[in-house]
Design a protein around this nucleic acid. Structure first.
Length: 445
DNA sequence: TCTGGGGTCCTAGGACCC
DNA sequence: TCTGGGGTCCTAGGACCC
């Protein structure tokens, strides 16, 4: 029995979903009918184009280019900041819809999914007809267009989706491989920025060139990657649908600062903020970090990271911050910093995480949880760290602005020099969930 | 074009142990 | 002792994806 897979890819996902969300809220203008993009924060002036409407095409606006550059190309461009929580809702609805066609559905990213259609023909007809049914069904049900790729495996289904856009069904079966072989090598899945120049060096220009290449001559350059690349070029892929997203192996947050940070204290406050959001996500998912890492990008866009294994896993903001700050102190080269990141890695179940004696003595863990609870009820700004009260403007970082008149101070009894008091501001605001990506973005499919 | 923010996986070298 | 080899852990860095 020949396997059949579908790959579903939402056309201009963020923009389409944003447009629909606004129409549903009563707006009359459909963003899809004017030159518009979903991009970063306008004020930080460092955003990029994440998604664009079809009318952007004549202006040559590309996904990934800076907002400034896009604006130059099209002065009347409408720029909308991304609302990932909204897009996740639309994404989840689509996944649920797809389940009527097969119980083997894999959410691959926020706007892509795989469906294993093997053995399902008697329910919904031949693959191409079923693929059209999905494409038209999604449009009827939700009002946006998708491309559907049909292939004998996930790789070819995904490659098929790219053949014609938007709103098409394409097939790429084994006997149709020449459709893919004609494409330039950079169109191959896993042939990225670093790999493509090396392949070209070997005289490989198209996917077909790579398919015919003697794999032995790839090994010196690409090592273990050689066989994967060669197999992909030949349409070979044995990966299975993974219907349940695997538990996250790491969580983290990073941010680009609107101006380059040059002071140690400013960097620390950004780190603290990042530790708060990371810690909150850990606690919400019941995980604890066995490794803490920080990432630094300097004004020359060079990136370096540092990590540290913890003697005992933690989900406490204060502990994350203690380590993040120490790591930063260890490696910062005293150069202007434009981006900072904090990651929690080697995640373990917090319930099984071994607690050190020190942890027992500290109130920090319980306190982090209490603060989460207060914020859940009264908003993020209901409780804030005293160190934020100076109210430095971090632009796109949601740095709480002090509004406290009557404040209550909670002191921690921690012995670390990095502890911060918390201040209750009494201000109420809606609680917004931190963006959480349940999706796998792996090296493979 | 001067570049966001979320991830995963692989490799290689050094430390350390037997 | 001037000298082996294998295994594992830790860390840094690079590559890819959306």
């Amino acid at each position: 029995m020949q396997s059949v897979f579908f790959h579903i890819d939402v056309n201009s996902a963020y923009l389409a979903w944003e447009a629909l969300e606004r129409l549903a809220a009563g707006e009359t203008l459909d963003l899809r009918t004017i030159p518009s993009i979903i991009g970063g924060d306008e004020e930080s002036r460092r955003g990029i184009v994440l998604s664009k409407s079809l009318p952007c095409k004549p202006y040559g606006i590309q996904t990934g280019e800076t907002l400034m550059s896009a604006r130059k190309k099209c002065p009347g461009l409408v720029v909308i900041p991304a609302s990932f929580d909204v897009y996740e809702r639309y994404s989840d609805a689509m996944i649920e819809y797809l389940h009527q066609f097969s119980d083997r559905v894999q959410q691959y990213s926020i706007d892509e999914a795989f469906v294993d259609y093997t053995h399902m023909e008697r329910h919904f007809g031949p693959p191409l007809a079923a693929a059209d049914k999905i494409r038209e069904g999604i449009y009827k049900e939700f009002g946006y267009t998708v491309c559907v790729g049909v292939g004998p495996n996930k790789l070819l289904a995904k490659m098929a989706t790219e053949l014609r856009k938007p709103n098409f069904t394409n097939s790429l079966m084994h006997h149709e491989l020449d459709k893919m072989w004609r494409l330039p090598i950079e169109d191959l899945f896993m042939a990225g920025r670093a790999t493509v120049p090396k392949l070209r060096q070997l005289g490989i220009q198209t996917i077909g060139d790579l398919a015919r290449f003697d794999v032995r001559y790839l090994v010196p350059t690409f090592k273990s990657q050689s066989h994967t690349l060669w197999e992909y070029a030949n349409g070979i892929d044995h990966s299975k649908i993974e219907p349940h997203h695997a538990p996250a192996k790491s969580v983290g947050n990073s941010t680009t600062i609107p101006y380059d940070i040059t002071r140690y204290d400013d960097a620390n406050r950004v780190l603290l903020h990042l530790c708060e959001s990371t810690g909150k996500r850990l606690r919400r998912t019941g995980m604890a970090a066995g490794v803490v890492s920080i990432g630094i990008r300097n004004s020359a866009f060079e990136y370096y990271a540092h990590q540290r294994k913890l003697t005992c896993p933690t989900d406490s903001t204060t502990e994350l911050y203690y380590h993040a700050s120490a790591l930063f102190r260890d490696v910062w080269k005293n150069e202007p910093v434009r981006q900072l990141g904090v990651r929690a890695e080697k995640l373990v179940d917090a319930n099984y995480a071994q607690l050190s004696l020190e942890e027992y003595r500290r109130p920090s863990k319980g306190m982090s949880k209490s603060i989460d609870a207060i914020r859940l009820r009264h908003g993020d700004e209901a409780v804030m760290r005293a160190s934020f009260l100076r109210g430095v403007d971090f632009g796109d970082i949601e740095c709480p602005v002090p509004v406290a008149t009557r404040s209550t101070r909670y002191d921690t009894t921690e012995s670390t020099s990095h502890s911060d008091g918390f201040v209750s501001s009494g201000k109420k605001s809606d609680f917004t969930l931190n963006r959480f990506s349940p999706f796998r973005a792996t090296g493979g499919l």
